[in-house]
Write a protein that binds this DNA or RNA. Sequence first.
DNA 1: TTGAAAGCGCTAACAT
DNA 2: ATGTTAGCGCTTTCAA
Lengths: 338, 338
Amino acid sequence: MAGKRARTTPTRPTTITDIARVAGVSKATVSRVLNGVGTVNDELARRVREVIDELGYTPSQTARSLSLGISRTVGVLVPDLGNPMFHQVLNGFNRAAARDGYHVVVADSFEDPEREAELAQDLRDRTDAVALFAPRMTRISLLALLPRVAPVAVFNRTTGKNAGSVLIDYREGVILVARHLIELGHRRIVFLAGPADSRSNWEREKGLTDLRETEPEVEIIDLACGHSFEDGYNAWPALRETGATAVIAFNDVVALGLLGRLAEEKVVVPDQMSVAGFDDIPFSRYSSPSLTTMTSRLSEIGERIWTVLRAEMTADPIREPVMFSPALAVRRSTKELR
Amino acid sequence: MAGKRARTTPTRPTTITDIARVAGVSKATVSRVLNGVGTVNDELARRVREVIDELGYTPSQTARSLSLGISRTVGVLVPDLGNPMFHQVLNGFNRAAARDGYHVVVADSFEDPEREAELAQDLRDRTDAVALFAPRMTRISLLALLPRVAPVAVFNRTTGKNAGSVLIDYREGVILVARHLIELGHRRIVFLAGPADSRSNWEREKGLTDLRETEPEVEIIDLACGHSFEDGYNAWPALRETGATAVIAFNDVVALGLLGRLAEEKVVVPDQMSVAGFDDIPFSRYSSPSLTTMTSRLSEIGERIWTVLRAEMTADPIREPVMFSPALAVRRSTKELR
DNA sequence: TTGAAAGCGCTAACAT
DNA sequence: ATGTTAGCGCTTTCAA
């Protein structure tokens, strides 16, 4: 006889076998009781349930998943759980998944493109599908990863129809924001750029490039910045240099960081400087002044990502990119140039 | 012959058996190559790796976990991923777990106490251990859950030594904040209370009760509020009624929501009203004015939760509650009463 | 209605 | 150094 058990370490305390033994029935019966299938004699069922309660047994989802071939769980890879924008999306996603009886587990890659592929893979190897939220990895890596983790849906990245994708039209968004500023009379506008390698920054840049064509009298200045509060806070010296009267921040977090700095520097917003952001995170309503920003229905987007991911799990996936058009939320941080 | 396969639905495309077959070796050899154990002939190993690459194979973590009895993955249950405070902790936890070669998956209960037990259970049934972050469930439910999900560590809840626990000393924290305000000359202070059933709110209340004893000349008024931006924003009318000159918010999120409202109402902070928060979330540095708050080294706390959870997985757990003392971060939102 | 047993994909003990 | 095989905990087919 070869092949004893492999078990390196702890194994679960109570298994279905224990329940079966104590209740004096077969594992099959316990399984049937557990899953409510095949008519089981009431008396037997009762006894089984009693034993289960008594021993405090819960089935191993790992074994169950292996046996069934599915787990009814999906994974989401997020580059930065700290970004409120992702919560909103995650929220909608979670809700929609729950409606379909799916559990959601989240992994944070902490903005490390190197780890993303491995984490996505690992997540996928324990779940039925994965959603990648704006991964930082290069397009090459992304395209290489996609087939290995299918079914997969991607948020805010294009996939060349190699996976479902849901995107926010940042190009349109930045134009909306910029036009708003232009209508207010601003002629020298700074764009505080985000991570150079991110698609969402790239799209904003494209929108601005278009705009420079159609609005030649307006000066739109690019300033490298970043994506955090601190980046916004630190952007002030360079911003002042430009003599701009309005600024479009890469996102709300950056805008809010900048707002904090401007307050310290006694630069009055919006009187001396108009500031706009992107994403409409919850706090942007409560900052002082409240923040003009590009808004999109993030939680609806999350629900849509679920729909797309769900379709990926079926025979006919939705490969046409789903594009969401943003809108402008005008609040107190922008004002007519006097 | 009975018992065909169970498979309801998809099964993984390539398995270790495929690799073994194509490479012309046994599954054991493939496994050895995969895990770098037992000396495998270089030539064979090379061939195996080639086939693996070619077929784009990655091992099923589910099968691996079942066989090994462990997954080197732990779960974290969070009541609200939207609360920045949890990220900070999660951050430290993740980092520490990664150092020990563990993966972390997160589940969000969306503040629903009903779902917490089930989610925790499910999480546990796919991982080696779980960390419960300030669960909303009642103490009874918590104590009932603990043995069922062990190894388990709990953040910001007491467990009566039925599990490892790490706590922030909010009692001490609120006293620190209140004393600061008292020293500034404030004699009528409002506390915007959080969720009535949460331990962390309860602890703050206790601290204030103590304080009312030792500082009889100071009036500390309790106002039911909540934990969100909106709750803080909406607290204004009731707050004004009291005629207080200083306010301690349940947390930074509430304080920030209030700050937004005060700005709208043209109540100048800190000149007309001092405002303090709890948690020191990243944004509290950048608000205008920056927020005086109770700070604790959240990411260090996260690391400590990992240590405690790790110990729970061994023969001698750390059952003595680990208490973190908070400190005061004085910033611009509080000022001497003139 | 119930039980026996095969098999999900993997690991490791054992034999060679 | 490599292969054979039992077994991890579960589900489901098949037989009774």
